[in-house]
Write a protein that binds this DNA or RNA. Structure first.
Lengths: 122, 122
DNA sequence: GGGCTAGTTCGACATGTGTCAACATAGACG
DNA sequence: CGTCTATGTTGACACATGTCGAACTAGCCC
């Protein structure tokens, strides 16, 4: 049956919610409730200016990855930066990896491509 | 009454917030605060499941437009549907036109294309 | 070990957002 | 005119979210 309805405690931890091939283009047919729920999470993650700047900073950084210290100059406190990076990670848009003292974030290219597909004009 | 009061005065009177020349791809360079502010509005508009369903319903409807009565079966009350359609309109994603008793909404294709550009992979 | 730097988590707070019922408005139609 | 149908607006309320400072954890180096 549908397992998507009641995810146990995943939202609280750091598991990416939406991993892969999500949905058809928005203009192909009306979204179902479940599709909308899943897709909205990704759009919502990019629906905050600070998160958008962080995401753009990571995406445009050389090598497609950036240390937090490289991108944390977005006008909010450091805990807030951390909070937003976590949100982006939970939405499946970023992944993170610790290397020594620093933590590096990189974009999940498949998800980016999937979102591009969503907006394809029919 | 004047629509969207909170809009900056960049564009003409009832023009949508984000006209065509919005922003470069997210991965081209880090977004400025202003770019992020403007772009986040569009993503935010699609960051709600109900709005996403409404938008998808309009976008996939024949002729690229739909009357409210055609799309209001999304599990929320009628005032809520109206509220979300207003939000989508304020974000520049939809336009509306009254024809007789009914109000028709249609997608703003240029904005959709602009969002697609944003997500283009470098 | 002890201090130092990089990042995350916690607790609290103010603001924003989605929702509905009730009311209001706009056109069609008799 | 009055009424019916289709939408929009208002007011209220619960809940989600963005933000910060303080406390915490992880790794490096003397």
């Amino acid at each position: 049956m549908s397992n998507a309805k009641a995810l146990p405690l995943l939202e609280r931890s750091e598991a990416p919610v939406a991993a892969v091939p999500c949905c058809p283009p928005l203009s192909e047919r009306p979204f179902t409730a479940e599709e909308a729920e899943r897709t909205a999470r990704m759009f919502k993650a990019l629906g905050d200016p600070v998160r958008l700047r962080l995401f753009s900073a990571v995406a445009s950084h050389e090598g497609g990855e950036a240390c937090v210290c490289d991108i944390s100059d977005v006008g909010v406190s450091q805990p807030t930066v951390s909070h937003h990076l976590k949100k982006l990670k939970e939405a499946g848009l970023l992944t993170s990896e610790r290397r020594g003292t620093w933590v590096y974030y990189r974009v999940e290219p498949s998800v980016l491509a999937a979102m591009g597909q969503l907006l394809a004009v029919r």
